[in-house]
Write a protein that binds this DNA or RNA. Sequence first.
DNA 1: TCGGTAACGGAAACCGGTGTCACGTACAAG
DNA 2: CTTGTACGTGACACCGGTTTCCGTTACCGA
Lengths: 342, 342
Amino acid sequence: MKKTGQPTINDVARLSGVSKKTVSRVINQSPLLNQETREKVQAVIAELGYIPNPQARALALRRNFLIALIHDNPNAQMVLRVQQGLLEVLRDTEFELLVHPVDRGAPDMRDEIRRFLERQRPYGVMLLPPISENDALAALCEQIGCRYVRMGSAAFDDPAHMVSSNDREAVRGAIEHLLAAGHRRICMIAGPHGFRSAFERQQGYEEAMEAAGLGVQRTWIAQGDYRFESGMRAAERLLDLSPRPTAIFSSNDEMAAGALHIARQRGLDVPEDLSIVGFDDTSIASHLWPPLTTVRWPIATMARAAALKLIGEEEDDDAEPAEPTMFVSTLIRRASVGKPQP
Amino acid sequence: MKKTGQPTINDVARLSGVSKKTVSRVINQSPLLNQETREKVQAVIAELGYIPNPQARALALRRNFLIALIHDNPNAQMVLRVQQGLLEVLRDTEFELLVHPVDRGAPDMRDEIRRFLERQRPYGVMLLPPISENDALAALCEQIGCRYVRMGSAAFDDPAHMVSSNDREAVRGAIEHLLAAGHRRICMIAGPHGFRSAFERQQGYEEAMEAAGLGVQRTWIAQGDYRFESGMRAAERLLDLSPRPTAIFSSNDEMAAGALHIARQRGLDVPEDLSIVGFDDTSIASHLWPPLTTVRWPIATMARAAALKLIGEEEDDDAEPAEPTMFVSTLIRRASVGKPQP
DNA sequence: TCGGTAACGGAAACCGGTGTCACGTACAAG
DNA sequence: CTTGTACGTGACACCGGTTTCCGTTACCGA
C-alpha cells in the first residue's frame, strides 16, 4: 500500500540491498565505490526507472540545476537560436532552461528581474543583448551569487563573463567588400542610440571609411531603431541625397529589408542601382528578393560556449584568467551587392 | 555566524515571534488567521526581504510550479509569440516557464520527452504544433500525470486539452477573398503530408473551390514542406501550368515568400500578374515586397488561454465539460492580391 | 601480529518548507 | 457553572534527498 508514486531512493536501496547512502554515492559519481556495487545499484535504478527528485536534490545540495535565459529581444530568430544552442549543451546534463523575457522600458524591470533571481536562484544566467549591456543587471547577478554570461557585440566586461562577436571588425569587412566592388558613396543606417551593438557597428563603418580615405559624412548616416519601419524612413532620407548613394549598409537585416522596400517603391533596382548589405543573417535575409548580402554571427556557437561557461568546472576562481571568448562573424555574399553604375 | 545566506522561514518566525507554521499560513493566504498576526508577519517578511524557497515548497507540496513548453517548431516567430503569451499570464503567478525544444525526427524523441517529464514533473505541459498532433505525447502527459494543453489547427482531441484555431474556415475565407476579386484559376501550395494543419488548410481550399463550383484539380495543388525552398519549387510547378494560375494560396508565409521569389524571377508582377495569399502572418509577410495578404491566427491569445487552462482551478474533473476553446483567425489584407488580368 | 586503508552500513541531523493534530482561549448555548 | 465549538496557534513528523560522524569488515603490507 505504498508503491503508488515514483520510486524513491529508499526503494532502490532496499531492492539492491545497500544503504541509501550508497545509492546516493552512485548517483553523485563518488569515486570510492566498488565497481560491482555500482553496477548492481545502477541495474536496480534502471529496472525501477528511478529518477532522483530534482527538488529534493536541489534542497539538500543547496543548489539547483537551472539555467535562466533573460532577454528582451525583438528578434525571434536570434532568441530561438540561442535557446537551441544552449539546449544542445544542456541536453546531456541535468540542467534545464528557464526562459524569462522581460520588458525593457518597463520601469520596474530591474526589480522584476531581481525578484525572479532571488526566487529561483538559478545556477546560471544568460543575458542576451540588448539588456546584456546593462551593467546593473550583471552586478545584480554577481550580488545574488549566480554565475552569469553576457552575450554581446564586443567584450565590454570581464571576459570571464562574456561571449562576444567582434561586430566592429565584421562591419569593416562588409564595407571593404563594398569598396572592393567599386562603391564610394556608401551610406549607413545606424542602430539606435545607446545600444552597444549599434555603436560598434557604426564604429566599424567609420573606421573602414576613414581607412579608405573617404572620411565620414554625418549626412550619410541615418539612424533607425532596428525595426523595419525605421529602415524605410532612414532609406528615404539617404536616397534623397544628391548624388544618391550607390550602396547602403544597414546595422541589421530588418532595417535593410525596409531599405529594400523603399528602393523598390522608388523603382530602383537592387543591386543594379543600389547595393544593400545587412547584418545578422536572420531568415529574412535569405528570403528577400534579391537575397541579401549580410553578416552572419555564429549565434548558436556562441550560445553553446556560453552554456559551457555557465555549467563549466567550478572555477577555482583564480584559475586561468579565462581567455576572452570572441567569435568571428562572416560575410554571407548573396545577390544584393553589385558594381556601382558609372 | 549564521546569517550568510537568504533569510529562511525560521528567521521570519523568530523575528515575528510566531511559529514557522504561522508564517507558512501567511504565505499561503490561509483564511483562518488573526489580522494582526498576519500584518505583523508580513511586516517582518517585507523587512527581511524573505522569499520562500521554491524547491523546498515543491518538495513539501509534492508539486511544483513549472510549466513546460515542448515544441519542435521551425517558426521562431511563432514560438516566441507563444512564449510571450504564456508568460504574460504566468508573470503574475509563481509559475515559471521551462522550455524544451525537441527534435522531431530523432528516433528517441519520445523517450527523451518521457525522461524530461519524469524528471521535472512539470505541473503543466504545453505542446506546440506540429508535435502537438502526436497523440502518443498527449497520452504520455496523461500517464505521467501532468496537465497538458495542445495547440492545434483544429480540435482533434478532448477539447479540455486543446486550444485551437479553425484553419479550415480561415482558409475558406481567404479563398473566398480571391474569388470575390475575380480569380478562378486559384492554385494551392499545400503543407507536408501528415501535418494536421496542412490537412485542414487543404480541406479549406478544397471546400471553398467546390462551393464555388470550380471543383478541385489535383494538378493545381503542389506540395511543400513549409520551408521557403519548397515554396519555390512548388511555385515553379504551378507557374508552368497552362493556362497559368492567376492566384496562389500558400499554406504558410514562408512558402508564399518562396513563390513570390519565383514569380519575381520569372518577371511576373505581384499582384498585377499573380496574386499570392499566405498563412500565419509572421513578420516576413509584412516585410516582403509587396506586403503579403495572409491569415493571422491569434497565437498570443491562444497561448494566454492555454496558460489559464494549465494553471486554472483544480478542475473538479467532472465540472463543466470545458467549452471547446476555438479561436478565429482573420484575413490580413495587404498588397499581394489584385484582380486577375482579363 | 599489528596498523592502515578501502568500501560500505547505520543513525541522526539537515535543507526549507507544509500537513496533521492537538492545545489553548473566548464566547455562546444549555 | 458547565459544556460545546469555532478560531488561532504551535509542536512534530514528513517530503526525498545529502551530509556528518562514527563503526564495521576485509584486505594488504610490514
